[in-house]
Nucleic acid binder design. Structure first.
Lengths: 336, 336
DNA sequence: TTGTAGGCGTTATCAG
DNA sequence: CTGATAACGCCTACAA
């Protein structure tokens, strides 16, 4: 039979409440009894029961992780899984644990908010999600602190890469290379990050210099990138010499798409991606790209969320941008 | 104030125990009251409190996920994250949730077993781990049901790919291609899967036909594969025409390593990998490889673990092998 | 079939 | 600074 706090207290000739205080490091206890308790606890290997503590204290020291929509593949997504990993590392140092939010317990459907309430999660990280999902809205509107790394909503704190900066770096780099015909292959605008990138491209390019073309890929993968590249070549009135692609995955396909039409990358067309996933440096040609700082995003999300939990301040709309940098590789390396 | 089961019962003129029974679907309750309760519960939006339930029932319907050693990168590992994803999908259908096992709550270190006990997890999935970690041993030796997808231990159920089959498929394929000089670049034998692959290669090749060479890579990544390929060329007394590589990641490097010494892949040297990660089909040349069925591994692990929890049978040593298949691509495509 | 009562292990409150 | 006591919300015998 496992010891509980009552028996431990009894064996120490103390009250349970005193033991509880030293265990949780709050309340006034003399250093002497504190030491005595700590020593004894370690000696007999006593440890608290989480459920009782949660029940009584009305909080769980647990943070919910929510992938909506892509919840069936969320962990396999290299971008989100990296963010999650760094979030996890950070919060564990602060004695929080993480658990996945689900909306279905066996047969019974329940809203995200309901689930969070039954579990008494202290806060939730919205890793990715559908803006239109009413359960997401309900959760964000609730009192539970939330932080997102993917989308923007009223009363929500969002941490994302500085997509505008990334686009600017890409365009500046083209100029440095003396490339004049800059086009873009954008990711599907169902993702807010892709949307931002495309919007900013339009904004920066719109000063009347050269005409330019933007093609929106129909999906996220290699094939979508390939197809978009072919379409770009068909639709543009001149061949581009520098193409900014909304993601590395798309860029891989786009490069092969250009090659399939007889153009050489980087000689004829330089290609720059966005993300810097692992394979970017292994691809042929190695991909020049905008590196997103996934670690920083995860850590910032963790920091913000914990802050919100501890400060108990009301929710507000907030957008925090994490800087990106350009990584130069072979896909833009042209001899001048 | 949230309603609890007592108030709900009161409002229905029933006893709390009756309500509890219908909520948990056990005990004898008339269909009429059952319907009445369900309707009312839905109407007023009542839902159970998880902590109270766990406290009382001594189980949590929660499964622990344990990454030891690589816990700082576990989620980013494409192989393990895929397994975890499919495990998660499966167990959620069975009304289980998953939580990550940690060994440190803020400052306080604790053993995995202690942690699992405080959380009352019903079982744990050992996604990857260090055999020599005493806390792992302690956990496996405990009463908590455990399943591993990475290593073997007494009294542990393990689900892994049929590595032997994979090696045999690879070797048979070489013969089909009329390749005579088969060598291997093995992964570091710190991983049991790599160990199995190498051992089986030795076993199959050892029939006195041709001499062969095996090089053990020093790490897991591209560069290790590259270096191993160069070393292989230096040490082998003849140039191989078919090289089996212990993982796709290593194979990517090995291909470039061979090329760096002037050999063409696949013409001079055919290369086959192991895993079939996403990038394998995008690489140049696209990589022939042995596909591991990560989905099946995750699902089998889930099924086994839930079975162990429900059947309460004593633990035993068990090894379940999941079949693999050969995926043919360009890296072995030679005209005959 | 339904109700009663006790207890799961902890923490919060308030008194000493 | 320490101790007694009452919840927290639920489940499980067992009694009615």
């Amino acid at each position: 039979m496992r010891k509980n706090i009552v028996t431990v207290a009894k064996e120490l000739n103390l009250a349970p409440s005193t033991v509880s205080k030293v265990l949780n490091n709050n309340g006034k206890v003399s250093q002497k009894t504190r030491d005595r308790v700590m020593a004894y606890v370690k000696e007999v290997g006593y440890f608290q029961d989480a459920s009782a503590r949660i029940l009584k204290s009305k909080r769980s020291y647990t943070l919910g992780i929510l992938f909506s929509d892509i919840s069936l593949v969320g962990l396999e997504h290299p971008f989100f899984s990296s963010i999650l990993q760094s979030f996890k590392n950070y919060v564990e140092k602060e004695a929080y644990e993480i658990i996945f939010v689900v909306s279905k317990v066996g047969e019974r459907e329940m809203s995200y908010l309901e689930w969070c309430l039954t579990k008494k999660v202290d806060g939730v990280l919205l890793v990715s999600g559908n803006l239109n999902n009413p359960y997401i809205k309900e959760l964000v509107a609730s009192d539970i602190p939330c932080v997102s790394t993917d989308f923007i909503m009223p009363n929500l704190t969002t941490i994302i890469s500085d997509n505008e900066l990334g686009i600017e770096l890409s365009i500046d780099f083209a100029k440095k290379l003396n490339r004049a015909y800059i086009d873009m292959i954008a990711g599907p605008s169902t993702s807010i990050a892709f949307q931002f990138r495309m919007d900013h491209f339009h904004k920066v390019m719109n000063k009347p210099v050269e005409p330019y073309f933007v093609i929106e890929a129909k999906g996220f993968g290699f094939q979508s990138g390939f197809d978009a590249a072919v379409r770009l070549l068909e639709q543009a009135t001149r061949v581009p010499d520098y193409v900014i692609v909304g993601s590395d995955d798309l860029a891989f396909g786009a490069i092969r798409g250009f090659e399939s039409k007889g153009y050489k990358v980087p000689e004829d067309i330089s290609v720059i991606g966005f993300d810097d996933i692992n394979f970017a440096r292994i691809y042929s040609p190695a991909l020049t790209t905008i590196r997103q700082d996934k670690k920083a995003i995860g850590e910032m999300a963790a920091l913000k969320l914990i802050q919100m939990i501890q400060d108990k301040e009301p929710k507000r709309t907030e957008l925090i941008k994490i800087p990106v940098i350009l990584i130069e590789r072979a896909s833009t390396k042209i001899k001048m």
